[in-house]
Amino acid sequence: MELFAWMAWTTPVAVFFISVAVLLLGMTVWQIKSPTVARRGFLPLRTTRGDRLFLGLLSAAYINLAWTGLTDLSQWFGAGIALLWLLVVMRWG
C-alpha cells in the first residue's frame, strides 16, 4: 500500500469510487441481460440508459455544487435532492 500513499485516500472518496465502479459493472450486466433501446423522454434528445445515467450524474454534481455555493444548509439535503433527480432522469428522461 506504500505505493499508493501519495494518493491520500480517504474512506468517503474510496466509497465513492467503489460505488461508481459497481454502478458501471451493474449497468454492463443490465445491458447484457436486457439491451437498452434509445428513446425520447423529457430530455431534449434521444437517450439510452447509459446516456441518462451520465446526464443524471452530471446534473446531480451541479445540484450539489449549487447547494454548496448558495446555501448554508447541510450538504446531505443537496445530495438527497440530487439523488431524487438522478432517479427521475433515469426513469422518465
Partner: peptide, 15 residues
C-alpha cells in the same frame, strides 16, 4: 483516472 482519484482525495482534506 489515477490523477483524477488523487484530486478528489485532495479536495476533501486539509493537507
Amino acid at each position: 483516472i489515477v490523477p483524477l482519484m488523487t484530486v478528489v482525495n485532495y479536495s476533501v482534506q486539509d493537507i
